[in-house]
Nucleic acid binder design. Structure first.
Length: 402
RNA sequence: GGGUAGGUUGCGGAGUGGCCAAUCGCACCAGACUGUAAAUCUGGCGGCUUACGCCUUCGGAGGUUCGAAUCCUCCCCUGCCCA
């Protein structure tokens, strides 16, 4: 009994809702007495190959379960990805091709492994049970729900009200996700709050199929670096796991001050009293401590510290980074007198997407050669080996001449 | 099947014959400032062998016109109403 409460305590940290807590408790009890671990399901769409910090919130919860001795079923929705989960979207998702999906799969494992113990994680693909379903199977599944029930879902009703298209296949999505729970005989399913409808569909479906209903745990949705919208790659306010430590550090430094508290709470183990004090006494320091901790978690403490030093160097002291990518100045760029047009140099070095953009940057005084502003777009420069070209705050190239 | 409203530059959304590369908001970029790639302010934000010049763009294809995102024809896509 005592152990059950202890487990429940750990599980409850940072959750938004547990449906139903009583059921979960009973499941834990049963698991403890029988020695059979709970089957904890978490599903992800292999639509975008990158996990970002927002995804780590529920994944960290999986880790909690893992540490408590339970079994994590990491579901890759390779089949449902073809449908596209409409959750949280006002529009239809593009359908991915088989190749796209396949290409994305392997990277998940690697990234999830930064949080989860892969030895104890079972990766499952829902195509293995969804693909063989027959039409009559599908009809049986669809007969469990009514149109009105599915339409009740927030994003569907919103789209319906706004006169935006909803395709039949999207309607199927929650049902198939629910069916996944049946196929896996899940005891618990974890998801972000926006997944609630889909998670509950699992309960309905399991009950209809004569299984014990899964407990549903919803986790908060991490706000993006803008501090307003949820973290999502499409809003470009995300912090991907797969990146350079320096890049991750920088992205974390760009979160709005108001988001710091949430990031500390959901992404670190820092004690509440400590980070609240840090934030109120010195916000800048608190933010870099946060960034250092998170970078440290994924790349190691040393990398976290190095990223911080580098950040200070480049953005606070406005010096060149210690490691600047080199760019070989080909003789073809130079004119007869050995001079190079700035705009040619910038675009050849890949520091601007187009020559027009390069021109604008020059005019805006964003371009420096060895700390000297080059403001004339028609300027011709004499390049010496080892000079540093800086474009904007973040783009550098060390010029090499052979 | 009938009727009707729409499809505009990353997103949202103006524009309904020349003043439109196309208002504005968001996102993004740059500069200033600062406590940071926060906040705030200012500017930029299709492309071009170097730019009061040229080229491409407003669902697609044709057409009218000196001139079209704006008018016409056909086609494709979406919403709503009726059946």
């Amino acid at each position: 009994m005592k152990e059950t409460d202890r487990q429940l305590e750990t599980i409850k940290r940072n959750t938004v809702e547990i449906i139903e807590e009583k059921e979960l408790k009973a499941k834990i009890d049963k698991s403890l007495s029988s020695g059979i671990p709970l089957r904890v399901k978490y599903g992800i769409d292999p639509t975008a190959p990158d996990i970002h910090l927002g995804h780590t919130v529920p994944i960290k919860k999986l880790k909690d379960f893992q540490d408590l001795g339970h079994r994590v079923l990491f579901l890759i929705g390779d089949f449902t990805a073809r449908i596209g989960d409409p959750t949280g979207r006002n529009e239809t998702r593009p359908i991915l091709s088989d190749q796209d999906i396949k290409r994305n799969l392997s990277r998940y494992r690697e990234q999830a492994g930064k949080i989860l113990d892969l030895e104890k994680t079972e990766f499952v693909y829902n195509s293995s049970w969804l693909a063989p379903l027959s039409l009559s199977d599908l009809i049986r599944i669809t007969s469990i729900f009514t149109i009105a029930q599915v339409l009740e879902r927030d994003d569907f009703s919103k789209r319906y009200r706004e006169g935006k298209p909803i395709f039949m296949q999207e309607f199927l999505y929650p049902l198939l996700q629910g069916y996944d729970s049946c196929a896996l005989q899940a005891d618990v399913e974890i998801g972000a709050t926006e997944q609630k409808f889909n998670l509950l569909a699992g309960r309905t479906m399991q009950e209809a199929m004569g299984q014990e209903k899964q407990a549903v745990i919803t986790m908060p949705i991490l706000v993006g670096t803008d501090g307003r919208m949820k973290m999502s790659k499409t809003y470009n306010n995300h912090v991907p796991l797969q990146s350079q430590p320096e890049e991750m550090f920088g992205r974390l430094m760009s979160i709005t001050d108001t988001a710091m508290e949430e990031y500390y709470r959901l992404l670190t183990r820092e004690r509440e009293a400590v980070f609240l004090e840090d934030i109120s006494s010195d916000p800048r320091k608190a933010k870099s401590k946060l960034a250092r901790q998170i970078v440290g978690e994924y790349f190691g403490l040393e990398a976290g510290e190095k990223a911080e030093t580098e950040f200070d160097r480049v953005f606070r002291e406005k010096q060149a980074p210690s490691d600047i990518p080199g760019f070989k100045v080909e003789p073809g760029l130079e004119d007869v007198q050995g001079m190079v047009l700035v705009i040619d140099l910038i675009s050849a070095a890949g520091l601007a997407p187009s020559r027009s953009e390069a021109r604008r940057l020059v005019i805006q005084k964003a371009v420096k050669l060895d700390d000297e502003i080059v403001a004339d777009p028609s300027a011709r420069l004499k390049i010496r080996d080892g000079q540093v070209l800086k474009v904007g705050k973040r783009k550098f190239a060390r010029l090499e001449k052979s």
